[in-house]
Design a binder for these strands. Structure first.
Lengths: 238, 238
DNA sequence: TCCCTTTTTTTAGGAATCCTTAATAAAAAA
DNA sequence: TTTTTTATTAAGGATTCCTAAAAAAAGGGA
């Protein structure tokens, strides 16, 4: 079975997580600060890490950066509700997912399962060719539209495009899944990490802004297309 | 259908909740304190729990902690007005959601549905073999008719077909069950997720539209056939 | 901290597209 | 032929999407 490293200075939370996840058949290894986490990571074979952001000694973001120097295992960040700055910082430094406290046990379980599945699926899928798919593709591309997720630069026809954070995230999500059609709800839930609740126009507005920036003729989009009654997609162009 | 355990010492509230939720097709099991709740939980297969925080004998938080020792089903906490301390305490001890009293029936129903959708529908689907059973086959096919449910593309003889959302859903339903014959009522109920109520022509109209798009000769359909007096089917062709 | 700028969300109106209804025609069964 | 069932057609009414602009929130610099 899989070993999960749980890192949080709040012992109650660590214990609670242990209860939830061990019921699902995972084996839990605990750490209470960043330093300890790095030690445990060396000593054990870990398949996934749950990492709190606010911690003494070495906080979650620093710890994550250390981890990422030589590991690509999935990391789920834990952050207190309102510190969404941390969310972004965490995600930009290599987290695979995040969960806000207080969190629902089932949500945590779902995310753990999903991240493990993705990780395991990918690592089995590509023994043959040299490229490691665990390292997510950093440059996303369709037609003449390019997005470099490391530098956060977006280009169309070789020209720089300046997107806002939200616009970037929406485009990134659709570009990572180019060709596939997603409903407004799905887009919202994937980009905001929250349940969508009547947030339909928000997407429409951002879509329009993105189109204004990446499309030659926003009224007849080449990349960001609507599938009437179903959702949106980014066209997959060779 | 789903069984919901409702726990509150106020019988009126329990009865009110029963009325709301049974109208939505849920089966309600009642308990009036924490001890009773734990008993009912042992005796029945419960899919979701609605749990009041303030109760005699054993309060909601204690009860929740007991539950969490060996169950991971979704729990929605009920808390009086503004005691948001309880909310947080409840969530940190493993609640998945909470609703404050007084609550609107619609809000409660929405949260129940959302929690069941997120955590119950999917959880049992992929235990046995590697493949997720909920993940239906992505590409549906019969003869030269192909449907890709990820890209929402439909092709006949290699040519793109543009269907509307409803047409797509009808064809998808019949294609997922190719060869089988469904009555107009069954098609309506499966595609609209509502009781069919004399809405017979609707299907006929859509069927005609689909035929116009996918059939060479709509009057003598090759794929979408009528079984006179019984219903429609999509022919299963190798 | 406050102010200014930028970004995000909300609101509202209009436009495009699709769904449903209803009426009639055609086909199959009785 | 009569009855029942399905097919066809066309027009409102309803959805869904687009657009603009203003309000609200977030970010940045003094």
């Amino acid at each position: 079975m899989y070993n999960i490293l749980v890192v949080d200075d709040d012992k109650e939370i660590v214990n609670a997580i242990e209860i939830y996840l061990s019921q699902e058949g995972y084996h839990i290894i605990k750490a209470y600060d960043g330093e300890e986490a790095l030690e445990k990571l060396k000593e054990n074979e870990i398949h996934l890490i749950i990492l709190d952001i606010m911690m003494p000694n070495k906080d979650g973001i620093e710890t994550l950066q250390e981890i990422r120097k030589d590991k690509t295992i999935p990391v789920i960040m834990l952050s207190a509700k309102s510190e969404d700055y941390d969310k972004i910082a965490g995600l930009n430094t290599g987290a695979d997912d995040y969960v806000t406290k207080p969190f629902s046990p089932l949500e945590l379980i779902a995310r753990v399962k999903s991240n493990i599945r993705r990780y395991v699926d990918f690592s089995h899928a590509n023994d043959t060719n040299g490229k490691n798919k665990n390292q997510k593709e950093k440059v996303l591309k369709t037609g003449t539209l390019e997005m470099n997720d490391e530098t956060k630069k977006v280009m169309v026809d070789g020209k720089d495009i300046k997107l806002t954070a939200t616009e970037y995230n929406i485009l990134k999500f659709l570009l990572e899944n180019k060709g596939k059609v997603y409903s407004i709800e799905q887009i919202y839930e994937n980009v905001w990490n929250e349940e969508s609740y009547g947030a339909e126009n928000i997407i429409a507005v951002h879509i329009r802004h993105i189109r204004e920036k990446i499309e030659i003729n926003p009224k007849d989009p080449k990349y960001l297309k609507v599938i009437w009654g179903i959702g949106y997609k980014v066209e997959d162009i060779q």
